[in-house]
Amino acid sequence: MTWLMMLALLWIVPSAWGHAPAAQTPGEINLFAFDPWSWSLLIGSALLYVRGLRRLRQRSGKIGRSRDLLLFCAGWLSLAMALGPPLDPLGGYLFSAHMLQHEILILISAPLLVLSRPGGLLLWGLPASGREGFKRLRLQRWLRATWDGLTSAQGAWLLHAAVLWGWHLPALFDASVRNDAVHALQHSSFFLSALLFWWALLQRRQAGAVLYLFTTAVHSSLLGALLSFSPTVWYSPYLETTRFFGLDPVDDQRLGGLIMWIPAGLVFLAAGLLLTARCLREPPLAEETR
């Protein structure tokens, strides 16, 4: 719980500027622009993690499991890829690039960070007053009850599905492209709901996890298929910008739909198969207690 609260705090400050492009000609497009808020947060989280590693080593002479460190680095790098150039500025001109950002956040960054279990190190990276503050928060009953609800398999599944489908409504998606604050909220909600989803299924190991992964693969693939087969453009900001890259707006949308459809389905199905294999390898509870 601690690591998610800390990542949420890092994400509260607007983490991405709006994608509304300013270029009027291809020559004006700047694909090397970066958002200072995103990079401040990314660098800050890395420094916090490194500080926690150093403190742990000073206290115990160890730095934790190398596997967790590698997973955290991979998750952090995927976040930097999704929120940095050239993908982030490109998302203002191509719907397919915007979709690729979302898929990286949901399918790569979130599960890698969940599997890396960085909570303890991030907590040790805080000053003593910060650690005490989080400890007091964890004792609050309402916070614990909220956490239990959000990280139940049902709660996490419903929240993730609602965020995914809700943000793809044309009115909300258009607003996220045109407005800085709405765009920050969109990326934040995608990332945080994905963290909750993967935490509930990978760390809490709740019954029915495979079913929730399978149904998520189905409904996310359905959304991707609807985008791919639609004969009309859903999101108006991209009607004029895809021409800079020689793409028809409908073709760009179809490509974005395929990016959601195929990778998402494969990742969720692969995760379901891995969870099934893990369950088959684990001995029954009755045997464990003999």
Rank of each mutant, 00 (worst) to 15 (best):
A209Y: 02
A200G: 04
A8Y: 07
F34K: 09
D88V: 03
W124V: 15
I63Q: 13
I262R: 00
L31A: 12
L247F: 10
R65C: 14
L31S: 11
L83K: 08
A16C: 05
R281A: 13
L196D: 06
R136T: 14
V163C: 08
R117G: 11
E282K: 09
L69R: 06
R55Q: 11
K62S: 15
A184V: 01
L201H: 00
L115E: 05
A181L: 12
I259M: 00
G155V: 04
P127C: 13
D252T: 04
L122A: 10
M5R: 11
D174F: 00
K135F: 15
H102K: 00
L196M: 07
L274P: 02
W76N: 10
A80G: 12
V13P: 06
F214G: 11
L100W: 00
G155M: 05
F72S: 07
C279H: 11
Q186W: 02
F268D: 04
F134M: 13
W157L: 07
L185V: 09
S228C: 03
A207T: 15
S116T: 06
I108V: 03
W198H: 02
L213K: 04
D251S: 12
G272W: 01
L83G: 08
L201E: 01
L158G: 07
Y49I: 14
H160T: 05
R144W: 14
W147Y: 15
A80V: 13
P231F: 07
A264D: 02
D88F: 05
L169H: 06
G272V: 02
S66C: 07
D68S: 10
L137I: 12
R138L: 15
A80I: 10
M6Q: 08
L126D: 11
P284T: 09
V13T: 08
A286I: 14
L247V: 09
G75N: 03
H219S: 10
T151M: 06
G130K: 10
T25V: 12
S45N: 11
A128E: 15
G120S: 15
D248E: 13
L42A: 15
E28P: 04
F190H: 01
L56H: 11
G149S: 05
A175R: 00
F190K: 00
A8F: 09
G272K: 01
W17H: 08
R67L: 07
W39M: 15
S221T: 07
R117F: 12
L247C: 08
G155E: 05
W3T: 09
R65E: 12
P118M: 06
F34E: 09
A33W: 12
G119Q: 13
L274C: 04
W142H: 14
L273D: 04
V250I: 07
A277G: 08
A82S: 04
T276R: 08
V218N: 14
L121Y: 13
F268M: 05
T241G: 03
L275Q: 04
V182E: 01
L222G: 10
A23D: 00
A184T: 02
I29K: 10
P85R: 11
A23L: 01
L247E: 08
R281I: 07
A225V: 07
A128D: 13
A8R: 05
S66T: 09
S230K: 07
L137S: 12
W167N: 03
D252K: 01
P86H: 10
V233P: 03
G92I: 01
P237R: 01
L172W: 00
A217P: 06
L258R: 01
W167S: 03
L137F: 13
Y49A: 12
F229E: 05
